[in-house]
Simulated assay, not measured.
Amino acid sequence: MITTKEVGFSGEQPIIAFTLMNRNGHSVELLNLGGKITAIRVPDQHGTIENVVLAFDDMEEYLEDPHHLGATIGRVGGRIANGAFALEGMNYILEQNEGEHHLHGGSVNWSNRFFDYEIDGELLHLLLTSPDGENGYPGQLDVRLTIDWTDEDVLILTYHATTTASTPFSPTNHTYFNLTGNAKTTIEQHRLRMDAPFYVPLNEESVPTGEILSVNETVFDFRKARSLYEVTHASDEALRQAGSGVDHPFLLKEGGEIVLEEPVSGRILRVETDQPGVVVYTGNHLAGDFTIAGRRATPYLGICLETQGLPDAINQPDFPSVVLRAGEVYEKRTTFQFSRVQ
């Protein structure tokens, strides 16, 4: 069942909250503003239903949010070096909205845009047209994001897009997960396992160096489950550059999964995707004059699992391509399955 409710305004534009409820009474909530996921309410091992994603207590915070809580990111997630790229003999200049670099599609990006919507039975479709030249990108891009919330507590995000001219396209979702429920503590006691044999090193400005390295014998090896406390308090220089935690791209094994577990609540999140990579961000810089679940925001209050193409792939010939060409149809899917220890 899908219901809608007006929860605020941006100018004269209403902010609409969608609630997708399954037969078990578990739900997902998101906004037409930025496609932002504001709640995923699932039970812990004792049956207590709580929100396992970070959400602002004040709706006004979503209007100007540098942290992109729950947002749909586009056209390209992550950084594009120097805000520029060459494609099919043409040079393109993008907005430089993070120093000299381009981040998450620009300062006025999809997390600031209002999506149109269609409800088709149990499916919610969010629709957006990114015009030719938006923030410097070529081609008109027509995007449909389909959201499905199943009775088995599986959230399925399917991205579908076409373009009138070749363009880099690598959307992602920027939800911060905290499986304790209602952000009781930080995510440092969570355990993370990923079928990710390779990671992408970054320079001092958090831009990929162009290398793809093995995680073997590094702090980035999550092939066996590890406590996130180990990485938020590690002395590794690469982690200090990211703000004492992880903010790095990983190349996933084909068909591999990402598993996040929280031992006290017993909640488990399994992520599967047909995207080549994931950016793991442990909320290193999450702070400000706002509250989440009644508490002041702090670093490590949530973890993002941003399934996508690798950042700066448009400038890196050894990375999987993120180019979408006219006449092609883009379709990628990520599933988030919630369960609990029995």
Rank of each mutant, 00 (worst) to 15 (best):
R295S: 15
S244I: 00
H285I: 03
E272W: 10
E237H: 12
H233S: 14
L269V: 08
V264I: 13
L252I: 00
T298Y: 11
G256P: 09
D289P: 05
E237V: 14
A242P: 05
V259H: 13
P249H: 04
G266S: 05
V231H: 06
S227V: 02
A238F: 05
V280W: 07
L251S: 10
P249A: 15
D236G: 00
G245C: 05
H285C: 06
R226Y: 12
S235E: 11
Q241T: 13
Y281A: 12
V280C: 09
D221P: 02
A293T: 01
E217M: 12
F250T: 02
P249N: 12
A297V: 09
Q275W: 11
G256N: 04
K224Q: 10
I268V: 14
Y229T: 08
F290E: 06
E217G: 01
D221A: 09
E262H: 13
P299W: 02
H248P: 00
V279I: 15
G294D: 12
S244N: 15
R226G: 12
T218R: 06
T291W: 03
V231L: 11
T273W: 05
D274K: 04
E217K: 14
S235A: 11
H285F: 13
G283Q: 07
V278Q: 06
H233V: 08
L228R: 04
R223D: 11
E237G: 08
F220S: 06
S227W: 07
F220A: 11
V219R: 09
T218V: 08
S244Y: 08
H248T: 06
G294Y: 08
L239G: 06
F290D: 10
F250Y: 15
G283K: 07
V259Y: 02
G277N: 07
G243M: 03
K253Y: 00
P263I: 01
G245T: 03
D221E: 10
G288H: 07
D289S: 13
P299Q: 06
V231A: 07
E262W: 09
Q241N: 14
T218A: 01
A297I: 10
G277Y: 01
F250P: 04
D247R: 07
R270W: 02
P276T: 09
R270G: 05
G294Q: 11
G243R: 05
E257I: 09
